[in-house]
């Protein structure tokens, strides 16, 4: 008999104890990997925040981060601007696009005409990969591309820079263009997790609701969405964690420069790591980027904890 069969309330049975070597052997590698690449890396990052390049204790890195809120940092990037852009992008994608995508996922899952074909079409950008996708978008929003041509034909007053070099060349239009692309692409919900959750809602619930006279939208908002609420809570929790890490492919749209005016926190952090890697890591002070990460973590943590608390409260309300 195994631990799967015989369970004791307190302590462990003889049969359970017999499985311990097998269990610990199985989990040994994943746990060691986690200890090295997550625990050690994060602890080291915190320690580096308070170290000079020579390894001496300092608060200089932390104060450099606070200074970078208003000025350009040692990497030539404006942290305050990146932060503002990230919050705008997160707000649009999670407070506007995400709720709409729940509805569009639900209707796709109700097998609207051609649903299989639409799904394949919507996933194509993800399958093509961001490298190919951003290259194609760059041509589409170029000065001689269809978007600028249509805007000019519609009489739009475009900046001179846009007329000569396209929507990604002007500070006024570059970030809005990138946000518009990600917004349009995000509207059609094609999340595998959410689709999977909707697919598990039994047909009988809808049939009995229909017999009770529930309309289409009532089925959506009062049956389907409450049924998958725990999945939605999980997705929203993950999205809170990504508040400063999603960067809508700014690196690729801007050829690694973040210009003009497109930097986000995700880009900011990636480009610093990239430049450190390009320099081989030698003679580079890791202090400032580590301090940047620490400050961001301290900023995000209360947001995530409060967000999770609110989501839990909402979940309780839904379950009542």
């Amino acid at each position: 008999m195994s631990s799967e069969i015989k369970k004791k309330k307190f302590g462990y049975s003889k049969f359970e104890k017999m499985n311990f070597p097998f269990i610990y052997l199985m989990i040994a590698f994943p746990i060691i990997q986690f200890l090295v690449f997550w625990v050690y890396v994060n602890a080291s990052s915190i320690a580096l925040s308070f170290q000079t390049a020579q390894g001496e204790f300092t608060f200089r890195n932390i104060s450099a981060v606070f200074k970078a809120f208003n000025t350009v940092d040692s990497y030539g990037l404006n942290f305050g601007e990146s932060l503002k852009h990230s919050l705008i992008i997160w707000g649009i994608s999670h407070l506007i696009v995400f709720p709409i995508s729940i509805i569009t996922t639900y209707i796709l899952q109700r097998q609207i005409f051609g649903h299989y074909v639409w799904r394949v079409c919507y996933i194509i950008p993800s399958l093509m990969g961001s490298i190919i996708w951003t290259t194609l978008i760059k041509y589409i929003v170029a000065y001689d591309g269809p978007v600028v041509t249509l805007l000019l034909q519609a009489g739009a007053d475009l900046p001179e820079m846009v007329r000569h070099s396209g929507l990604l060349a002007s500070e006024k239009t570059a970030l809005p263009t990138v946000i518009a692309v990600s917004t349009i692409m995000g509207l059609v919900g094609n999340s595998a997790v959410l689709t999977g959750a909707f697919s598990r809602v039994p047909d009988e619930i809808f049939e009995s609701a229909k017999l009770d006279g529930a309309g289409f939208w009532r089925e959506c908002f009062q049956i389907a969405i409450p049924c998958v609420w725990s999945t939605l809570v999980m997705m929203m929790t993950f999205s809170l964690c990504s508040i400063f890490t999603s960067d809508v492919n700014v690196f690729l749209y801007s050829n690694g420069t973040g210009e003009p005016g497109m930097t986000t926190v995700g880009f900011h952090l990636y480009i610093i790591t990239y430049r450190i890697s390009m320099s081989g890591g030698a003679r580079t002070s890791y202090g400032y980027p580590a301090a940047l990460g620490l400050v961001l973590t301290c900023m995000t943590l209360p947001v995530v904890l409060i967000g999770r608390w609110l989501l839990d409260k909402l979940q309780d309300a839904v379950e009542l």
Binding site: S45, C241, S242, L269, P289, L294, L301
Partner: peptide
């Protein structure tokens, strides 16, 4: 580890990997 965001460990990871 999945729900608490710890941001910006990229440089420290590169240091370790190197």
């Amino acid at each position: 580890a999945n729900t608490i965001p710890i941001i910006g460990a990229g440089p420290a990871k590169f240091k370790l990997m190197s």
